[in-house]
């Protein structure tokens, strides 16, 4: 945008600069809250506020003790293990089921395609409090409430819509006659899947899996209702920390989570760039 067209009046230029300034202010609004917690997590005092020492950059007002506390606290260690375990298992289930379903749905042969799609994507739309309450009643009857199994199945259900959407998008414009050709030439279905379909949708599958993982990794309401103390996850631990006793350990965890999400975001962007390159390559 840098330069304004010559026919712009001074007012129009000012107006555009105003929009630009607003845009940067909005970015500040988006980023500042996340950045604020990082220095606070090095607070030497057990509260959530900047102390005078911190503002004066006095080194003794800063401390690593909240990070040490995470490592020393069995509950946090368990929560971290649980979050990854539940997240990975749920992602595995969601990715396999979601990818297959998306292939069926985009084939153009699926009856009631629109209705089924709406149903399959509804876990993403229904408020989590409703999902969680329903699961609490139903999973208790099945005797899987308060177990890893219960939480994993629940999180897998919540993750599938994202896989369906991303794989769906990756399959948009995919020519199914390729599959028929491959099958027609005698290739086994499994072989066809991995050699014909998979290379095309891989970025979609991976980004869907990432979404599914993040959904589980970030989810707290279902965990609140369904998990026992043994299945505590990071967000659940943070939630009770915020409700019961606010201390900077939560900020330290939050800082670590920001780093993790930064890494996930970079992976995502890398995949997107690769996906675009691949698609561009098709055209050439």
């Amino acid at each position: 945008m840098g330069k304004f067209p010559r026919y712009f009046t001074i007012w129009q230029k000012l107006g555009l600069s105003g929009v630009k300034l607003t845009a940067y202010l909005v970015l500040l609004f988006l980023m500042a809250p996340i950045l604020v917690i990082i220095p606070l997590s090095f607070n030497a005092e057990p509260y959530f506020t900047f102390t005078e020492g911190m503002l004066a950059l006095d080194p003794s007002a800063y401390s690593m003790k909240w990070y040490e506390e995470i490592l020393a606290d069995q509950k946090w260690i368990l929560a971290i293990k649980n979050s990854f375990y539940i997240g990975l298992m749920a992602t595995l289930i969601a990715t396999v089921l979601g990818t297959t379903a998306a292939i069926g749905l985009t084939s153009g042969q699926m009856p009631f395609q629109r209705m089924i799609m709406a149903l399959l994507l509804s876990p993403m739309i229904v408020p989590l409090i409703i999902t969680a309450a329903g699961m609490f009643f139903f999973y208790t009857q099945l005797d899987i409430a308060g177990s890893y199994m219960g939480v994993i199945l629940a999180h897998a259900a919540l993750g599938t819509p994202f896989v369906v959407i991303t794989v769906n998008a990756a399959l948009a414009g995919f020519d199914y006659s390729l599959v028929r050709a491959s099958l027609g030439m005698g290739a086994k279905p499994v072989y066809t899947f991995f050699k014909v379909i998979m290379p095309l949708i891989r970025p979609g599958v991976i980004s869907g899996a990432l979404f599914a993982f993040v959904t589980s990794f970030d989810e707290v309401i279902v965990v609140l209702f369904l998990a026992g103390p043994e299945q505590r996850t990071i967000p659940r631990q943070m939630f009770s920390g915020l409700r019961e006793e606010i201390n900077p350990t939560i900020l330290a965890v939050a800082t670590l989570l920001v780093i993790i999400s930064g890494l996930l975001l970079l992976t995502m962007e890398y995949l997107r760039a690769r996906g675009e390159k691949m698609r561009a390559g098709d055209v050439d």
Binding site: V214, M238, F239, L242, A254, L264
Partner: peptide, 15 residues
């Protein structure tokens, strides 16, 4: 824009 989107809800609420 995307970093907040990918950051845990709990983190943003904490903030």
């Amino acid at each position: 824009v995307l970093l907040p989107f990918w950051t845990s809800l709990l983190v943003r609420t904490t903030a």
